[in-house]
């Protein structure tokens, strides 16, 4: 209904009463909505509607994902060693000489174990990208290692077609992530053992870690102890603590 361009004072007064009432009710409704969000049952540490919000974003942005679209790369001279953040999963001692990791299928059966040399057999790939932390800082660094895609090829025959996620955890199982398969198959997603051309140090994930500029740092697990191929999303350390499971960039 179109509004009249002008009102008499009598009509205006009536209008004012009605509008203030509507406004008051709308404000109350808004406030109730706000309480409703706050009082929602929690879904992994955030109100369920907000978890749904994350899932909506995941649907939108994974739908728009293009495997041939690369994250921006930089010149090697711009790279520096990342600041250290997050020691979950790195607190126990590690004997690098003795280290190995296992690979499991969706049902949990062990498909293989690897030492660092197995990964070094795969094509070497180096890239300089901007690493982004969900806390709000970003830094350019250089990673060297093998593409995860090439590694996965070793297992392609043993895996069902419907692999949707890859789960990784540290040797002590204290830190773990789940990453969608599209990201894992991307060109820039790597099993990384070099940082700025030299072996990666312990606090940055020695001897082998996951890196990808397509996700925030929380997904780029340091010190791999186990890799499992999954047919649905798996556990995720920060996802369970209120963050987005997808965490894509």
């Amino acid at each position: 209904m179109a509004e009249k361009p002008e009102l008499s004072m009598a009509a205006y007064r009536q209008r004012t009463r009605r509008s203030l009432l509507t406004g008051g009710l709308a404000a109350l409704a808004g406030f109730a909505g706000w309480r409703w969000v706050q009082d929602q049952p929690q879904s992994h540490n955030i109100p369920t509607v907000l978890r749904k919000g994350h899932e909506f974003n995941e649907a939108v942005w994974s739908g728009l994902f293009r495997e041939d679209h690369q994250a921006r790369t930089f010149s090697r001279s711009a790279a520096s060693i990342l600041r250290v953040n997050g020691r979950q999963g790195l607190r126990s001692e590690i004997d690098l000489a003795d280290w190995q990791f296992t690979v499991k299928g969706p049902d949990g059966t062990t498909l293989g174990t690897h030492v660092l040399n197995d990964i070094k057999q795969l094509d070497y790939f180096e890239t300089t990208i901007e690493h982004k932390c969900i806390e709000g800082w970003a830094q350019i660094t250089n990673w060297g290692g093998a593409r995860f895609r090439d590694f996965m090829r070793l297992y392609e025959d043993q895996l069902p077609d419907n692999i949707s996620h890859v789960y990784l955890e540290t040797p002590d199982s204290q830190y773990y992530v789940s990453v969608d398969i599209e990201t894992m198959r991307h060109d820039q997603t790597m099993l990384t053992y070099n940082n700025l051309g030299v072996p990666i140090d312990e606090l940055h994930g020695a001897p082998l870690r996951l890196t990808t500029p397509l996700k925030y740092g929380i997904k780029q697990l340091k010190r791999i102890g186990e890799i499992q191929f999954l047919t649905e999303a798996g556990r995720d350390y920060w996802g369970e603590r209120g963050y987005d499971w997808y965490a894509g960039l």
Binding site: N45, I46, V49, G53, H54, W238, D244
Partner: peptide, 14 residues
């Protein structure tokens, strides 16, 4: 409150 901040921010952004 980072996790909650992000959850609100990315939902209400729409």
């Amino acid at each position: 409150r980072l996790a909650r901040g992000i959850a609100f921010h990315f939902t209400f952004a729409w």
